[in-house]
Design a protein around this nucleic acid. Structure first.
Length: 575
DNA sequence: GCCGTTTTCGGCCCGACTGTTTTCAGTCG
């Protein structure tokens, strides 16, 4: 079984145990085991082969055995029995807001509910309302939850979530009662997808702010409206929570609700070791006496109090950031303003919307010194990919733009060349050699085995004309799973051949995933933040790529397109 | 089921909100 499937099984075990009413801490152990598996820095096969899986924090003896069993495709009776003992319909019901394991069990045990369909029936028949602990409002909430189940369980691309959040944040800050306001949660941590929006505001008059929030335009329903906390659901299905706290608690609430969970757990235990108790309410001494929290005005001071350097939200994933902050070894993360240009962008020669000149002007308007264009090659027939003759024409046009003196922004001539099924490249070497750079990408035959796909990439990387690898796993967030490829082996091949692996910055790709970059960069891998823009509008996606690089602990040194143009030219010429 | 500078047992975050309750359990983050 692949790592991703094993992770799913662990998560499913946690859900099944919850529905059976098992020990909550055991359930949490499976959940944290799943997270540990998802964030492994090394290949699972390597860890198992060297009997080192049990050394991973959160994976003990029992989980090691179960993961190894699944990895070797052996039967796991513990899981099979568990699965057989719970009606599959009950798992689905957890997606309905307001229904947790205990209520679902009660519905099952007392009314025989085992599917969403039978739940609807007993809600409508009035039986649920008679059940102890349920009432008319519960029934209404359940029925509405069933109806909107699909929209409610959906996550959202960071980019879309951010576009929703920014105007709300500005609106909050404009309120006279609000002293400070921030968006927290995974949005602030710049996760590639966001479940819901979390806002934190500082004020001594929370009620007026609550009223403003629940009456925002596009609010479809108000799922909570308290004195200091409210929740709304927008027409898009996205949920947003707002908490209002007194100004002297703001920093603690912001830190707490920014998370991640793993980061908070580690911060709390660090606070305890220093004799403090840290919560969203403040930092107290262990005997619960409040300490002088009014001296803490920003997160930097909070971290300093725990003898830590400031940890940017992007790094707060419980992946060693606290240890690095303690040792003063946090990286100086790459920023938007470090970018001097971008590579891998399309024009209307293939499937882009704009001309070479329009794209160049747009790049120049963004303050960039260079723009790397790279249209599709002929195997990508559906995108009007270029054959050898059209590539040569395109090169001439790009040279003419540079020679015209019309732009300060320099155009680097490139192509996004398809990697064919056997790992060979789609265009003649003699054509590829005339280009400044070549992005090699997979756009077909997604269903090869991991071994075949890995070899396909390695062969392409070993081609002397390859400069960088495009969207390594082909994933489309929330839409298409990545294809199977051994990332560690491809990374090693790229380093050995001095090939760059791009950070495809399209908000739906962000590929290669940030989780691999800390380790890959430490081995010497270079990336390039490539917007894969198909229009002048698409160039702004570079900042989504920067977000992902920051989550991957990358400094400007590891990002090719932070380099000045002369250094880029000599690097490309030297290949 | 995991973990250990209080280490092989006993703890594991905890408070707001809701709907039901008449003092609280369940859900959620």
């Amino acid at each position: 079984m692949e790592k991703g499937e094993i992770s799913d099984v662990l998560g499913e075990i946690a859900i099944l145990l919850e529905l059976k009413g098992d020990n909550p801490f055991k359930i949490r152990a499976y959940q944290s085991g799943q997270r540990a598996l998802d964030t492994l820095e090394e290949e699972l096969g390597t860890l198992i082969g060297e009997s080192r899986l049990g050394e991973v924090k959160g994976i003990g003896k029992a989980l090691t055995e179960k993961i190894e069993t699944l990895f070797n495709d052996e039967p796991l009776p513990f899981y099979d029995d568990l699965l057989a003992s719970v009606e599959p319909g009950l798992i689905e019901m957890l997606e309905i807001p307001g229904l947790g394991a205990k209520k679902i069990r009660k519905l099952h045990d007392e009314l025989g509910v085992d599917t969403i369909g039978s739940l609807t029936r007993v809600c409508e028949s009035g039986e649920v309302a008679k059940l102890a602990g349920f009432g008319a409002k519960s029934v209404e909430k359940i029925l509405s939850g069933i109806q909107n189940r699909e929209a409610y369980s959906k996550r959202h691309l960071w980019w879309i979530a951010n576009e929703t959040a920014q105007p709300i944040l500005e609106g909050l800050r404009d309120l006279p009662q609000v002293a400070r306001a921030e968006a927290a949660g995974s949005l602030r941590r710049k996760m590639e997808t966001v479940g819901d929006l979390d806002f934190i505001a500082a004020s001594d008059e929370p009620e007026a702010i609550m009223d403003w929030f629940v009456s925002l335009p596009d609010v479809r329903e108000v799922s909570g409206h308290g004195k200091t906390k409210s929740s709304v659901r927008f027409e898009s299905g996205m949920q947003a929570d707002l908490r209002v706290v007194p100004p002297d608690q703001f920093v603690f609430a912001l830190h707490h609700f920014t998370g991640s969970k793993d980061h908070n757990v580690a911060m709390r235990s660090r606070a305890l070791s220093k004799g403090f108790s840290l919560s969203e309410w403040g930092l107290r001494t262990e005997d619960k006496e409040a300490m002088a929290v009014d001296t803490i005005e920003d997160e930097e001071q909070l971290f300093k109090l725990l003898d830590l350097n400031y940890i940017p939200p992007e790094l707060r994933e419980g992946l060693g950031e606290i240890e690095s902050a303690e040792a003063g070894q946090l990286p100086e993360l790459v920023q938007d303003k470090d970018l001097k240009g971008v590579f891998h962008n399309h024009t209307h020669a293939s499937d882009g919307d704009h001309s070479i000149e329009e794209m160049t002007q747009a790049a120049q308007d963004r303050g960039w010194d260079y723009l790397g264009l790279a249209d599709h090659s002929k195997a990508s027939f559906q995108t009007n990919g270029l054959d050898e003759a059209r590539v040569e024409e395109q090169i001439e046009k790009m040279h003419a733009v540079n020679a015209s003196g019309q732009f300060k922004c320099h155009v680097f001539t490139g192509i996004e060349c398809d990697i064919l099924k056997d790992g060979s490249l789609d265009l003649d070497d003699s054509t590829l050699e005339k280009l400044d750079y070549v992005v090699v990408s997979v756009h077909s035959s997604f269903t090869l085995s991991e071994e075949e796909m890995t070899q396909r990439f390695i062969k392409a990387i070993e081609h002397p004309c390859s400069t960088m690898v495009g969207h390594l796993t082909g994933r489309l967030l929330l839409k298409r799973e990545p294809y199977l490829v051994n990332i560690e082996k491809v990374v090693d091949a790229a380093i050995a051949n001095r090939v760059i692996i791009e950070m495809n910055a399209h908000p739906q790709r962000l590929d290669m995933d940030w989780r691999h970059w800390k380790r890959a960069a430490s081995k010497g891998l270079l990336t390039s933040v490539n917007p894969d823009a198909h229009s002048v509008f698409g160039l702004q996606y570079a900042s989504a790529g920067i977000n992902a690089c920051r989550k991957g602990w990358l400094t400007a040194d590891s990002v090719f397109n932070t380099w000045p143009i002369e250094k880029i030219k000599s690097y490309l010429a030297g290949r």
